[in-house]
């Protein structure tokens, strides 16, 4: 699924039926849920947000004008839902990282290391890293999703990687070497 305008048109045409929504859910549930898991660092919260996202998608689907790709539109709803959730949650309690997501079973794989480090990354960097490096969005798409400039997206991505590299340096090659600034 490449999120083209044609795809958007197809989705809109089918929007009136429950089936098309179900199809949309099947196509995007992984992306939305994974993004929510990594942004919220909590699987149960990610389930709630995924519900919110798709309920919103369903309600707004008929008014979707296809001006942006469906994927960009859904990611925007997902990211905003995550931010809203965190905002509400912050009022109640700090996020418990102990309830975090289950990561892959490969011990000390780079992906596992990244997964375990993500919750400690600043929210702004994390959003861009998740969307760009993990979910594969382009900077122009991220700019639309987050309402920032392409340059800001690139800058945050580079800082996110810098943070990860610093954190993971002991496990990447020379275990005792962390590069100084």
């Amino acid at each position: 699924m490449n999120g083209t305008i044609q795809e958007a048109a197809d989705t809109r045409r089918q929007a009136g039926t429950d089936l098309s929504f179900e199809r949309l859910y099947e196509m995007y549930r992984g992306r939305v849920f994974s993004t929510a898991c990594r942004m919220l660092s909590n699987r149960a919260d990610a389930e709630d947000v995924t519900q919110d996202v798709f309920v919103k998608v369903f309600k707004k689907l008929k008014s979707f004008r296809g001006e942006s790709a469906v994927s960009t539109w859904i990611y925007r709803i997902a990211v905003n839902a995550c931010l809203d959730f965190r905002r509400r949650r912050r009022l109640r309690q700090a996020i418990s990282l102990d309830e975090g997501i289950e990561v892959g079973s490969t011990p000390l794989s780079v992906t596992r290391l990244i997964e375990s480090t993500l919750p400690r990354m600043a929210e702004g960097y994390r959003r861009v890293f998740v969307l760009h490096d993990i979910q594969g969005l382009k900077h122009e798409e991220i700019a639309k999703v987050l309402g920032i400039t392409d340059g800001a997206s690139k800058s945050q991505l580079h800082r996110a990687r810098a943070f990860l590299r610093r954190e993971l340096a002991p496990y990447l090659g020379d275990r005792h070497w962390v590069r100084g600034e």
Binding site: R29, G30, R31, F33, S34, C37, R43, A46, E47, T50, I101, V103, G104, T111, I114, E115, F129, D133, I134, G136
Partner: peptide, 9 residues
Amino acid sequence: APAMEQFVP
């Protein structure tokens, strides 16, 4: 990063 697991709800 792109190989990171896609979680399914």
